[in-house]
Amino acid sequence: MVDLLTIIISKYNYWGYIVLMMIGLYAMIVKKNLVKKIIGMSIFQTAIIFFYVSIGMKKNATIPIISHGHDGGEHAVHAVDFINPLPHVLMLTAIVVSVATLGVALALAIKVYQQYNSLEEDEIDSQIKVK
């Protein structure tokens, strides 16, 4: 029983990211509305970022900013005391790029709406087949 609890506590964050990723994938596969698909894409991206941040986590460690002062002087920095900063760096740029791709995707959606006067995939399909 205690074993099961430790497994759950040490793994539930990964399960959370998988659930979020599957929500995003489901929206991208099944939903017919283009804005819903874009929301699904954004959820997928944040799920991946969540995974990266989770694997950078360390227990009993503090945020990756070294405390310093003019009078306190330098003291030795141990890697165990600080959370891994590398995934944070990679994901920080990924978030800003995700908003850039979001802008382009919404621009495409507006263009499709101007052409076909609808955002639903099946209606756009039927209009393409008629032509």
């Binding site: 040490s10 694997i55 227990k59 900063p85 590398l86």
Partner: peptide
């Protein structure tokens, strides 16, 4: 995916592979 997480290092493990190769250099 959930089956794949069985092999993952525990959450918050200081000795996980992500925290042992290049990132200690950056921190120190």
């Amino acid at each position: 995916f959930i089956y794949g997480t069985v092999e993952f290092p525990g959450w918050g493990d200081p000795l996980s592979p992500t925290s042992t190769h290049v990132s200690p250099y950056y921190i120190e």
